[in-house]
């Protein structure tokens, strides 16, 4: 028994040594990656200095032409959205950005599934934050989702779980996914009509909505950190008609905090208009440019940016 316990301890000691060496190497590599998802993430967390920032999910990444916003409004803009993510990642990224500087304007694209509703496993939003766990304020995000993360994150290998391969390839070959232009990654494709059906309404109020209290809590924290900045909640267009009652918590937040919401849901210019979309939820490159132009007009009405 003693021999067994001794050898198991020895095994874990070997694992700890391996873990530290691996962590040291991967931290060095991943922090130097300049391309792909990690390169974009490094830029957002460590280098971005633009006055206007866009946050949100893939609907932010693919819809907000940051270069067009910069050129038209005269305010440097960067798109900090992330596919499949919402307020939990956005809050983490904002915390890291605020360590360096304070942006002037925030555009937050609301996607109810990622920002309001219950249903998704909140662990998924931690993926891009794992590498930044040791930075101020980031660790508590992990603990708020799952207290066990406190112990899991002791392992450096776990911190680089599922990302080490792409980071090694990106570092040594410089080949990785597209970083985008100022974080904006449009899809220059035609609408895939197989993927949509008319009559379907995005979000179904018939069973009532169950909101995720943690996401609402992070929306509030996000707004606390952005005090003194111009914050706009934006709902960009969908091919589908939308039940906008799902946005009730956002409308309430806007009322309480005196914020403005720019809502393109059910805008007749976009609903069921194939030429602007790649699928039911995402604009294509043409649609993204059109939407950005419309958004610029709305922002100008609200005294953001210079006159054309």
């Amino acid at each position: 028994m003693r021999k067994f316990i001794f050898r198991v301890c020895l095994f874990f000691l070997a694992i700890i040594v391996f873990d530290r060496v691996f962590g040291f190497l991967m931290e060095g590599i991943s922090s130097r990656v300049e391309v792909g998802v990690t390169g974009r993430d490094n830029f957002i967390c460590d280098k971005v200095t633009d006055d206007m920032l866009v946050f949100g999910s893939s609907r932010a990444v693919e819809h907000y032409n940051a270069q067009m916003l910069t050129d038209s409004l005269g305010i440097p803009c960067y798109n900090c959205g992330e596919t499949g993510c919402g307020i939990i990642l956005a809050y983490g990224r904002l915390r890291m950005i605020l360590e360096r500087y304070k942006p002037h304007t925030i555009l937050y694209e609301i996607t109810p599934d990622f920002d309001l509703l219950e249903g998704q496993d909140n662990h998924q939003y931690l993926f891009s934050l794992k590498r930044h766990y040791d930075r101020p304020g980031i660790d508590s995000i992990f603990w708020s989702i799952d207290t066990k993360e406190k112990y899991k994150m002791l392992s450096k290998m776990y911190q680089h779980n599922s990302s080490f391969l792409q980071n090694i390839v990106a570092y040594f070959s410089g080949i990785a996914g597209e970083t985008g232009v100022k974080g904006f990654r449009p899809y220059d494709v035609e609408m895939d009509t197989m993927k949509v059906r008319k009559g379907h309404i995005a979000y179904d109020s018939s069973k009532g909505y169950t909101y995720d209290s943690l996401k609402i809590q992070y929306l509030n924290k996000f707004l606390d950190k952005t005090k003194g900045m111009n914050v706009f909640f934006v709902v960009s267009p969908m091919w589908y008609e939308q039940d906008t009652s799902v946005m009730a918590p956002i409308q309430k937040l806007c009322q309480e905090r005196g914020l403005q919401m720019i809502n393109f849901a059910n805008n007749p210019k976009y609903v069921h208009n194939n030429k602007y979309f790649k699928d039911g939820e995402h604009l294509n490159a043409r649609g993204a440019d059109e939407f950005t132009r419309d958004l610029i007009q709305e922002l100008r009405k609200r005294n953001i940016g210079g006159k054309p």
Partner: peptide
């Protein structure tokens, strides 16, 4: 074990 920690899907 290193592969489990680095390439495993947790959750």
């Amino acid at each position: 074990l290193a592969l489990i920690l680095t390439a495993g899907v947790f959750g």
